[in-house]
């Protein structure tokens, strides 16, 4: 099959390279990444397919795909890639772009996870595990999820009922604010 590749199809790959330094254009489809991926069974577009889609400049398809949301950053693919593509850095960039550009995130639970996690860190300076788990279950509309585990963990002294707030919360708030300010100034 002949495929006519227009010159600007590489713009998306170059945008990614500019953001994280990874050159997806060097991927030659050996599929080692997908073969070792523990989450491949959940992904509609497999890791090597995602790489090809980036090469073809399919920006919409890539940013709305579920691939990077199933990826758990286990680094198996990046470790084995013969072209030394740090695939997880590509996944991170795609996640960040999809978040910031307001794409619908097809695995809603994962989106909720990240939001609730960071909310806890910004509020307390640390992750308040129990509050986090309850908050997440509310977001997942499954408030009783793992309800059987709570008391077991509590009895084992593995759950704290109250959050530990860092003393210097001001500097944590400042850190988050400064990140937002700096990022907004660059858009």
């Amino acid at each position: 099959m002949k495929v006519a590749v227009k010159e600007d199809t590489t713009a998306f790959a170059k945008e990614i390279q500019q953001k994280c330094g990874q050159d997806v254009l060097t991927c030659y489809q050996c599929r080692k990444c997908t073969m070792g991926c523990p989450m491949a069974f959940k992904m509609k577009m497999k890791v090597n397919e995602l790489m090809r889609a980036i090469q073809l400049g399919l920006r919409e398809e890539v940013l709305s795909s579920d691939t990077m949301w199933w990826c758990v950053s286990c680094e198996t693919c990046a470790t084995r890639c013969p072209q030394d593509i740090e695939i997880v850095e590509v996944m991170d960039v795609l996640r960040e772009m999809a978040f910031k550009e307001g794409y619908y995130i097809p695995v809603e639970s994962i989106e909720a996870f990240h939001k609730v996690f960071l909310r806890s860190v910004e509020a307390y300076g640390r992750l308040y595990e129990m509050g986090f788990a309850m908050d997440l279950n509310l977001q997942l509309k499954d408030p009783l999820k793992d309800a059987d585990l709570g008391p077991v963990m509590f009895a084992k002294g593995k759950l704290k009922l109250l959050p530990h707030k860092v003393k210097d919360l001001k500097s944590v708030k400042k850190l988050f604010e400064n990140v937002r300010k700096l990022e907004e100034s660059r858009v």
Partner: peptide, 20 residues
């Protein structure tokens, strides 16, 4: 008075935050 490293989530939403 250490703060959370942001693991799991910061790197998925903001690279700068994940390093800061």
């Amino acid at each position: 008075d250490w703060i959370c490293c942001g693991a799991s989530s910061a790197h998925a939403t903001s690279h700068l935050l994940s390093i800061a």
